[in-house]
Amino acid sequence: MPADKNFFVNNPKEFTVSNGSRAVTIKLDWPLVYGDPNMNMAKNQAEIIASIFNSYFQGPDMIAGARALNDKQVVLQGFPVGVSSKLIIGGKDKEFFFPQTTYSGTDKDTSKNRQFTVSDGTNTTTILLNRKYNDMEDLAGGINDYLSVEPSLQAVAEKIDDNTFQIKSTNTGANAVLEVGGANQTEFFNQQIFRGEDEKQNANREFTVSDGTKTATILLDGNYSSIDGLVQAVDTQLEAAAVRVQAEKVDAQRFVLRATVAGIQIVGGGTHWNELFVD
C-alpha cells in the first residue's frame, strides 16, 4: 500500500471487475486524504482505497463490495455470495492490486447446522442453530431469539449446567404443553411431547391447631421437598393466626407441635389430624 497520499495522483491506476455479465471500470487518480467526506472518514489508506472501490459499485454496477482486511490489504466480495459468485479482474493495472485474476465463491458449509421445531400446541417456530456458540448460556439465548419471533409461543429456553439446556413452557398445570420436532430434534431431546398436570387437590392435607384461645387452620398444599419445608409452612400459618404453638422437626420424616408458653394445652382437629398425629 503506497505511503504517499498523492501516489495515485502521480501514478493513476485502472482495472476492471466483472462478474461474467457486467464489468465495472475502476480508476484511482485521487489523493489518499484522511477525513475526506468521499472516503467515509476512513482511518487508514486501505479503508480509503476500499471506499474508492465501493464508490464505483453502485446501483446496477453493485456486483461486488470492498473492505479493508487490515491497514494494508483490501479484499473484494462478489454479489451474490456463494458458489454462484464469480469475479474476473482485468485491465492494465490488475496485478498492482490482485495476485490472481479470477475468484470463484463457495457455498457456506452447513453440515454442522442443526434444526428443530418447538410448539405449544397452537404456535410453532423453527429453531436454526447455524453458528458457533460460546457456551450453553449463549446457545440458550440463541434459541430464545427464535422463540421470541413468535410472541404467542409459550416457551423459553434456559441453561441447566455447562452441558445442558432445557425448553420449558411458560404456562402451568394442564395448560403447559410443549412439542418438539424437526430434522435434528432427537439429538437434543429424549422426549418429544411434554404435558403438564393440574395440581392434585386430593393430595392436600388440612387440620386445626388451638391453644385454647385461638385456632389456626393449617393447609398443606405445597410440594415439600423436605421435612424442613413442611415445618416452615406449618409455623408460618400458626404465627399468622397468633396461636402460641410451633412446629419442630424430629427427624427427616416427622415433626411435632409444642406450646410456646407454659401451661397451654394443644388441641388438634380437622379433616386430616388423625393422619398426621398420634395423640
Rank of each mutant, 00 (worst) to 15 (best):
D36H: 05
I48Q: 05
I49S: 02
I48K: 01
D71H: 02
Q73V: 14
P99I: 14
K43A: 12
S119D: 12
P80L: 06
G90D: 13
L76N: 07
N40S: 02
S55D: 01
Q73K: 14
T110H: 09
I88K: 09
F79T: 13
I89Q: 10
K43V: 09
Q45T: 07
A46V: 06
F96L: 06
A46G: 07
T101F: 15
I49M: 01
T117H: 05
I88H: 10
Y34I: 01
Y103Q: 02
N113K: 10
F53V: 06
K112H: 09
G90R: 14
F97S: 08
N70M: 10
M39R: 01
V83T: 08
F53Y: 09
V74L: 11
A42E: 07
F57P: 11
K72N: 00
G35F: 02
G65W: 02
N40P: 01
T101I: 13
A68N: 02
Q45R: 11
N113T: 12
Y103A: 02
G78M: 06
L76Y: 09
D109L: 11
L69P: 03
T110W: 09
G35K: 03
K43I: 11
T122S: 12
G82M: 13
F97L: 03
M39P: 00
I48H: 03
D120C: 04
S85D: 08
G121D: 12
S51P: 04
M39L: 05
D120H: 03
S111P: 08
K43W: 04
F96R: 05
S119Q: 13
A50S: 06
F98H: 05
I63K: 00
N44S: 01
